[in-house]
């Protein structure tokens, strides 16, 4: 349709030299660039060359020129041993782009400000935000509200569950190290900078399970509100007795198994009900 007209054409002697491999690398490259654009010279080449091998050469030229160079993220994911197709799927995660990165930076900023403003207050703020980061990121990584091409994903033979788990995995893999880094900046027990992983895990599993009933954005918001209520109430209790004990209470050895149970039950619910995610309209 909208072809830009080349301003020059390769003559027969140049094309013959190119086909015989007698042109320099620079000349070959510019002939190839031209052939990609110019149907006239392409048919010239076709006439000059044995048609069968030419098609193969042509295909490889076109593939090389058109395939975009892999991004650093893609190279990294391939190093981790992810299959090429999964790398392409992960790259489409809406939350891995833009808004999500901003969210992580904000979280880090929060934690740093909090750390500077005093230990007890700082750990509380951190405890409240850190588990929310993966939850909100997962909520922003699939579904009609977050992914403008979600309807296409649903209409494809790939299981939406696979896509969701790949994307959630990508999100968690980005969120956890960064939040852990932020946690390490904070004064106080090093235990707290690891233990918050339990409520995040429960929150993510709960969000996925609830997404089989409601849009995932609503599910994520609900879980975030619930967590805010729980940590707020515990903090209020903590202030009445001794400031800072809220952190200890929410992450105490008695409470951690509760998160684990929530995560396991929610994971099972998601597994059983995940078929519902293979429709689009019900969740739009």
């Amino acid at each position: 349709m909208n072809r830009t007209q080349p301003t020059w054409h390769a003559d027969e002697s140049l094309l013959t030299a190119y086909l015989d491999g007698r042109t320099s690398a620079a000349v070959s490259a510019s002939v190839e660039q031209h052939l990609v654009r110019c149907g006239q010279c392409r048919s010239g080449v076709r006439q000059l060359s044995d048609p069968v091998p030419f098609q193969g050469i042509w295909d490889s030229i076109v593939t090389d020129i058109s395939a975009p160079a892999p991004t650093r993220l893609e190279v990294f994911l391939r190093h981790l041993g992810l299959a090429d197709r999964d790398v392409v799927l992960v790259r489409s995660t809406p939350a891995v782009q833009g808004a999500w990165v901003l969210g992580i930076l904000l979280c880090l900023l929060f934690a740093t400000i909090a750390a500077a403003s005093g230990a007890a207050y700082g750990s509380l703020l951190f405890l409240w935000t850190a588990p929310l980061v993966p939850v909100l990121a997962v909520a922003m990584s699939f579904g009609p509200h977050a992914d403008p091409s979600w309807e296409l994903a649903v209409a494809s033979p790939s299981s939406p569950v696979r896509l969701i788990l790949l994307r959630s995995g990508a999100v968690i893999a980005t969120a956890v190290p960064l939040s852990a880094l932020a946690g390490a900046v904070l004064p106080g027990s090093p235990w707290a900078s690891i233990a918050w992983l339990m409520p995040s895990l429960a929150g993510v599993a709960l969000t996925l399970a609830l997404a089989t009933w409601w849009p995932v954005t609503h599910a994520g918001a609900g879980v975030a509100l619930a967590w805010t209520a729980v940590s707020g109430a515990t903090a209020a209790d903590g202030y009445r007795s001794s400031v800072g004990s809220a952190t200890v209470e929410l992450l105490s050895a008695d409470v951690l198994p509760v998160y684990l149970v929530i995560a396991v039950v929610a994971g099972a619910v998601f597994a059983v009900r995940s078929d519902r995610l293979s429709h689009f309209g019900e969740f739009s």
């Binding site: 975009p68 833009g98 403008p148 979600w150 296409l152 033979p157 790939s158």
Partner: peptide, 20 residues
Amino acid sequence: AGYPRGFTAFQFVDYVAALK
């Protein structure tokens, strides 16, 4: 038919091909 943010035409069609 929306497209993932920041994608080129090639990346978008490549993504759907991966889904397929």
